[in-house]
Design a protein around this nucleic acid. Structure first.
Length: 468
RNA sequence: GUCCCCAUCGUCUAGUUGGUCCAGGACGUCGGCCUCUCACGCCGAUAACAGGGGUUCGAGUCCCCUUGGGGACGCCA
């Protein structure tokens, strides 16, 4: 049978990096084996599921390029099917109605905690013959009382849990709607999922689900539980650890392939290799090489990978992605150099696209003020004659291109008997507004003659006024 | 508390039938070179097998215990 994996998020929030990683692993495994990848929205919790979350999850998947072959399926559209199977279980006495009230269950749980035993349903309605008046019952699955459930996890190896640890879980709420542990099982069965790849936090659910699967007479899928991602404080990754929403990384100027590369390498490895193209990870990915231990999210390394891809990716493609950020910030790029050229001079000094955008803003719009420190250091009285000389010589330059502009600067340094830095730095502050920019000749070329001359004049006036 | 899972540098990890590992790579950090700024690049340094018992000629690699961490224990998923 050919492989089929699925990603089954519940639409109660954004797509976070942990979810994205399990999605990636499932996607990779399907791709690698020429199988199929299914997206299923687990929205049985009507209270908390929102359309907004669905949209955001889909956007995240699409931004990452994790396309699915089937779906999205919505569990809320399959209630009829779940109802059928619950009835069938009831008919076979593999499930039963439970009339316990919430208060009763709370009291039971409290009592068990006090006795320092694992809180669980004690099965008091297991053999009840008569309904109780005034209570809408839930349906509980009749879990086997003896023996143990053993399964072979593709990442962890053998896992065994005694049935005595498992209680009779609720498969239908009192309003008749099915619950998670039941719907996953039915869907995985109906959709012929062969490999269930999911977070570690589901490991305890697996034995229960296996019991239900058996009661339903279904074949068992393979299971692979990937470890959690922790924040820098060792606790489970959450909002307070910074950007955990996938889309937030887009906002912050990360490239999808950088995030993907970081995520695939977090908890999985192929020898010493650090950089993987999508093709490479698809080819090399193995569940057996997934680490068993939880790993800590390290944004420094993600940043490094992002920079790596900014340095090495196709400039045209990067320009397109950079454009997204300019648009978002409503910056008009018509009046400045082509974005591809900006990418080429800025890629080595920008770790994110946001950084790149900020550093290139001065090509497109006049800056409001000069960087204070830069003014102090570079706009000293002696800079005046340098800038005046530059203004004069730049006006006379015939071909406005890097090489000739470079000659102007070096020539001036020679004739004025100054170091390069004494010429280039004041010039840089004059045209860029701050002491940092790409090489001065490239910057001048991209900025163009008109803007360069204007800004030199502006700087000269500024220094003159400052010295009054 | 009970059950399940896990344990190599600060972080991600290599280590796949125990020996060639006084433990390798990457990020970070710290030095240095390059240099018109910031970077890039290059060179070098730093730092780990949680602890204790076994098994064995030999253990990071196998077994047990301890400790530590994570997860689960919902009419959430």
């Amino acid at each position: 049978m050919s492989v089929k994996t699925r990603f089954a998020p519940s639409p109660t929030g954004y797509l976070h990096v942990g979810g994205a990683r399990t999605a990636l692993y499932s996607w990779l495994y399907a791709k690698k084996t020429n199988g199929r990848f299914v997206l299923r929205i687990e929205d049985t919790d009507r209270e908390r599921s929102t359309q907004e979350s669905i949209d955001v999850i889909m956007q995240g998947m699409s931004w990452l390029g994790l396309d699915f072959d089937e779906g999205p399926f919505y569990q809320t559209q399959r209630f009829e099917r779940y109802g059928e199977l619950i009835q069938s279980l009831l008919d076979q006495d593999k499930a039963y109605y439970c009339y316990c009230s919430r208060d009763e269950l709370d009291a039971l749980r409290k009592q068990q905690m006090e006795q320092k035993i694992k809180p669980r349903y004690d099965g008091r309605c297991r053999h009840r013959q008569q309904p109780r008046e005034g209570i809408d019952p839930v349906v509980r699955f009749r879990n086997p009382e003896h023996g143990e459930v053993v399964f072979e996890d593709l990442i962890r190896g053998t896992i065994a849990v005694s049935n005595q640890e498992l209680d009779d879980l609720i498969i239908a709420r009192s309003d008749g709607t099915p619950t998670y542990n039941f719907t996953v099982v039915v869907d995985d069965m109906d959709m012929n999922i062969t490999h269930v790849i999911r977070g570690d936090d589901h490991i305890n659910n697996t034995p229960r689900q296996i019991n239900i699967l058996r009661a339903l007479g279904a074949e068992l899928p393979n299971y692979a539980h990937v470890p959690m991602i922790l924040g820098s404080d060792g606790a489970r990754l959450s909002k307070r650890h910074g950007a955990v929403s996938v889309l937030q990384y887009r906002e912050q100027g990360y490239l999808p392939k950088a995030l993907l590369n970081y995520l695939v390498r977090l908890g999985w490895s192929h020898g010493d290799q650090e950089v993987f193209s999508i093709e490479e990870m698809t080819e090399l990915f193995e569940l057996s090489n997934v680490n068993r231990a939880a790993s800590t999210f390290n944004s420094e390394k993600l940043l490094w990978l992002n920079h790596h891809y900014i340095k090495h990716d196709d400039p045209e493609q990067l320009a397109n992605q950079l454009f997204w950020h300019f648009q978002k910030n409503e910056v008009d790029i018509e009046s400045g150099p082509p974005l591809v050229d900006v990418v080429k001079v800025l890629r080595e000094r920008s770790k994110t696209l946001v950084e790149m955008m900020e550093m290139s803003l001065f090509f497109y719009a006049d800056f409001e003020s000069y960087d204070e420190k830069a003014v102090k250091k570079q706009f000293k009285p002696e800079a005046l004659e340098v800038l005046q000389a530059l203004l004069e010589q730049f006006s006379a330059v015939e071909a406005w291109e890097g090489e000739s502009l470079h000659h102007v600067v070096t020539g001036l340094a020679e004739s004025m008997q100054k170091k390069m830095g004494e010429i280039a730095q004041p010039l840089r502050v004059a045209i860029a507004g701050r002491a940092v920019s790409p090489p001065i000749d490239a910057t001048l070329e991209l900025l163009g003659r008109q803007k360069t001359l204007q800004r030199l004049e502006r700087a000269i006036k500024f220094i003159e006024q400052k010295n009054l």
